[in-house]
Design a protein around this nucleic acid. Sequence first.
DNA 1: GTTATACCCGACTCTTTTAGTCAAGTTTAA
DNA 2: TTAAACTTGACTAAAAGAGTCGGGTATAAC
Lengths: 150, 150
Amino acid sequence: MQLTSRGRYAVSAMVDLAKHQNEGPITLSSISERQFISLSYLEQLFRKLRENNLVESVRGPGGGYLLAVEPKDITISHIMSAVNETIQTTMCKTDETGCHRGSRCGTHNLWSALGLHIKFFLETVTIQNVCDDKDFLNTLKAVEKTLSKQ
Amino acid sequence: MQLTSRGRYAVSAMVDLAKHQNEGPITLSSISERQFISLSYLEQLFRKLRENNLVESVRGPGGGYLLAVEPKDITISHIMSAVNETIQTTMCKTDETGCHRGSRCGTHNLWSALGLHIKFFLETVTIQNVCDDKDFLNTLKAVEKTLSKQ
DNA sequence: GTTATACCCGACTCTTTTAGTCAAGTTTAA
DNA sequence: TTAAACTTGACTAAAAGAGTCGGGTATAAC
């Protein structure tokens, strides 16, 4: 199980964009240089980000990309799904090819709980949080404490 | 990002084993039938589970596999790492090929927090819990409540 | 109106990982 | 002796991921 570059690059680029928000349209080549991501690959990613209304483009010289939404309203989850980086923890379908040939397998609840666990994290954190480099570890400790009480 | 069959199959097989614990050695072919996993593939997985001391084998007729540890002491994390299903959320290295050419990228803390978040879940849940089909969703709600207060 | 900048788009290739198979063993109870 | 069942290494095919390439189009500046 591995987080792919696609998702990580997309988030890095969006954070970069957020940090330079007040400088007008930001070119992909500048992001490319700062984030060590190839220009062609960025173009691919930004196509999807634009189609999902996370960024706006300005064409022509002096053009570039702008955030279409405030950083505090863009979650990691938004970005990840925009570039098709979905979190799949189950393979369960209702047909014959599904997790247990139609019926629920004994581990179904486990995997869907894991899926929700991850989903919640990604939906909670915004790129504003990342820009502020919010201390995620403190948040996590609170989670662990709660879980341990169960 | 996707949980692969390897990890899911291994957990299913271990849960199956736990549920038939008191019946003596369990053959892979019986697990194969119950869990819809090919025998050859199971053999591959159980080699790793044995090498990691999670199961014991009994050879010859009447043989099979036994849990080497109590179900309450086997976490999902143990099983996953035994079959090399690791959770990689970062690509960070300290060399030139790392996340930001030596220095820390702006999203490093985000991804390592995600990694810890998942790790904690997998280390908390045991196969005993899965056998009992513990209500994971209630647990998760408590987590969400805690996080929302932040 | 020409030019250069920078976004736009589809198709393609290369590599790695995963899933699953196969063909041999070896051990041991009956 | 036989058959059940584990043991092992190697192999193949399919899928996904990472990244490239070669063209486009819009538009500001001159």
